[in-house]
């Protein structure tokens, strides 16, 4: 080495002497990605671009639409339909909370207490998927019918007086009220809450409950301090899987609600299919998407589930 001390320092830092030997299967990950990526491009990216361009077009059905970068469509749509936006968020949030309240005890039961009934209850949770979404929602029309047993029971228990007072129902009716729409949403998205909750509860080591009890935690304290924090990943994914589709849903409002319960999904559907105002419909879709994305981001940040193992 001593003879090399006078040699000038190399210009390029540490240039490798030769190319590293080419590994076999270097491209395998990309080949495996290809089908999914193709699918995503054709059925997600392209339609998104198409919708984005539609949302900034002007024109009429007769003369055809042209891209004029008319962003005012967004403001007009928001100005006109913000009540439906708010209502959608509110209904979806109510349904999500109801799903959590109904789903958590059931998921807990299946995960920890069901024993040999576990599989049967799981099948019962999934069983509704064997019939069509529409049929099931229509069935709620019968369940909540004005002369049906549910309305009678609620009436005789004077619960309807209370919900009337709160504005959830109107005049001895449940059908065609906010309550009916929220009930429908809750029913339809309940399994999407239960399944992730169950998955995360089931992963909790039962010995942690024993350890908590051994360390002087009463059963309820054990739930608050151990079980619930550890089930947070399930709570977060369950609420997302419920809230996101519920916020964009229009079937429940269409079938169980009235013109006073129109959600943003109904507006978009009408704009697209009846009024044929494609730019407004597309703009509304993008606003909804952006709003949900923003809310979800804040929610995930806040819940701090990244920290959970």
């Amino acid at each position: 080495m001593s003879t090399l001390t006078e040699a000038p320092p190399p210009l390029a830092p540490a240039e490798p002497e030769g190319k590293p030997p080419r590994k076999r299967g270097r491209f395998t990950p990309y080949w495996l990605l290809l089908p999914g990526m193709l699918w995503l491009v054709v059925f997600f990216a392209l339609p998104m671009i198409y919708q984005a361009s539609t949302s900034v077009q002007t024109g009429s059905l007769e003369d055809g639409y042209n891209v004029t970068w008319h962003f005012a469509t967004y403001w007009d749509a928001l100005a006109e339909y913000w009540p439906q936006f708010l209502r959608s968020v509110f209904y979806a949030a109510a349904a999500t909370v109801l799903c959590l309240l109904l789903g958590y005890p059931l998921a807990y039961l299946i995960a920890f207490r069901a024993g040999r009934w576990r599989n049967l209850i799981m099948i019962l949770v999934i069983a509704p998927f064997f019939t069509s979404f529409l049929i099931r929602t229509l069935a709620w029309k019968t369940i909540l019918a004005d002369n049906g047993p549910v309305v009678h029971a609620l009436n005789s228990l004077h619960i309807l007086d209370l919900t009337d007072f709160l504005g959830w129902t109107a005049g001895d009716r449940v059908l065609a009220t906010p309550l009916a729409v929220v009930c429908g949403l809750t029913y339809n998205f309940l399994p999407f809450m239960i399944l992730p909750l169950y998955t995360s509860l089931e992963r909790i080591d039962g010995r942690l409950h024993e350890a908590a009890g051994d360390l002087y935690a009463k059963p309820w304290t054990t739930f608050r301090k151990v079980t619930f924090p550890l089930s947070m990943p399930g709570v977060v994914s369950g609420t997302l899987l419920t809230f996101i589709p519920a916020a964009g849903d229009y079937v429940n409002s269409e079938l169980l609600g009235s013109t006073d319960t129109r959600m943003i999904g109904n507006v978009i559907q009408t704009q697209f299919l009846r009024i044929l105002d494609y730019p407004t419909a597309a703009a509304l879709s993008f606003i909804l998407m952006a709003a949900i994305l923003a809310m979800v981001t804040i929610y995930i940040r806040r819940s701090g589930t990244e920290d959970l193992v």
């Binding site: 080591d205 942690l208 024993e210 350890a211 002087y216 935690a217 550890l230």
Partner: peptide, 17 residues
């Protein structure tokens, strides 16, 4: 939770969160 007894569990059962 009412016994003045504590246990060291086989798998430790430490609270992961």
């Amino acid at each position: 939770y009412k016994r003045p007894v504590n246990t060291v569990f086989q798998s430790y059962a430490l609270f992961p969160h």
